[in-house]
């Protein structure tokens, strides 16, 4: 009896202590709750209540072919962007590991500068560069590779070029982080043991870099799914992605129910992929 009371007392004081410990984080906590959690929650509710209570919004999103096309587009672009960034990022990360640090620092500076340059500005730049009268088409025609401008913008090509550009830093950094922890002696040991360069690459370097590759790919894929600005500016009318759909439904057509339902399909896919990855591989540390 007494022991039980005592145990409860220490439990209460322990709870009080934990509460006091948390106190300094309270303002940030309250802020995020009011400004972030609450609005998102209200939006979530609206997807079930507007215009009528029920799952109607979700039903029309997964049955109407117009919306299904948007989903397909979204996954297509995210996949294409992930592949193209990976093909570029792996050699870059490898380069950064083997070159003298002075050179690596310069390349890093370029990567960071591109990453921290305004998203809209970068997209705008590609819009100007890729347009029919833009520098790239002028250059292609000057070389005589084409006689008429190649349509590079207002279509899927433009979206993928622009998004690859924007996502590249997010995959180079994790691959580089993993690769730079590898001991060059491992490769030497494999080589002494008689392995050819090809074998060493596929049996040792690639498997050991896999954690970084998977982290980078997931990051790029998930971020691409929810991108708005770049596809909106560089894509054509038929290349709409889900984030655009959300924005347009709500801002242009004031269709809050359908828009918020689309938003939550996007959020659900994002979180599902993220949590699946965390369960399989562990937490992704943002760099």
């Amino acid at each position: 009896m007494v022991a039980a009371t005592e145990a409860r007392d220490t439990a209460t004081t322990e709870l009080a202590r934990q509460g006091r410990t948390l106190l300094p984080a309270l303002p940030a906590l309250v802020f995020l709750f009011l400004a972030f959690v609450l609005p998102v929650w209200v939006l979530f509710l609206r997807s079930f209540t507007e215009p009528a209570t029920g799952l109607g919004n979700y039903q029309s999103l997964v049955t109407d072919s117009v919306y299904l096309d948007v989903l397909v587009n979204t996954f297509f672009v995210a996949t294409a962007v992930t592949i193209s960034t990976l093909l570029l990022a792996f050699p870059i990360a490898w380069f950064l590991v083997i070159v003298p640090s002075r050179v690596a620092r310069m390349v890093f500076a370029v990567i960071l500068l591109s990453m921290w340059t305004n998203l809209l500005v970068r997209t705008y730049a590609w819009l100007v560069l890729l347009q029919d009268t833009g520098a790239i088409n002028q250059f292609l025609m000057y070389l005589g590779l084409t006689s008429a401008p190649v349509p590079l913008v207002n279509n899927m090509v433009g979206v993928i070029i622009g998004m690859t550009y924007i996502m590249l830093p997010f995959i180079v950094l994790p691959i580089h982080a993993t690769m730079s922890t590898l001991d060059p002696a491992l490769m030497q040991a494999a080589s002494i043991a008689g392995a050819k360069a090809r074998t060493i690459f596929f049996r040792i370097l690639l498997p050991l870099t896999l954690p970084g590759i998977s982290a980078g790919c997931i990051m790029v894929f998930v971020m691409s799914l929810g991108y708005y600005i770049t596809p909106a500016l560089l894509g054509g009318v038929r290349d709409m992605m889900i984030a655009q759909l959300v924005a347009e439904l709500i801002q242009k057509f004031l269709n809050w129910g359908l828009g918020s339902a689309a938003a939550f399909i996007l959020l659900f896919i994002t979180l599902a992929i993220y949590f699946a990855y965390v369960r399989l591989v562990g937490l992704v540390r943002p760099t």
């Binding site: 972030f36 929810g226 984030a243």
Partner: peptide, 20 residues
């Protein structure tokens, strides 16, 4: 929780706040 705004697509935060 404190890192979650980095994971949620910005457009969702945007429309949610827009409603508010």
């Amino acid at each position: 929780f404190f890192a979650s705004p980095m994971i949620v697509p910005v457009v969702i935060i945007a429309v949610a706040l827009y409603g508010f």
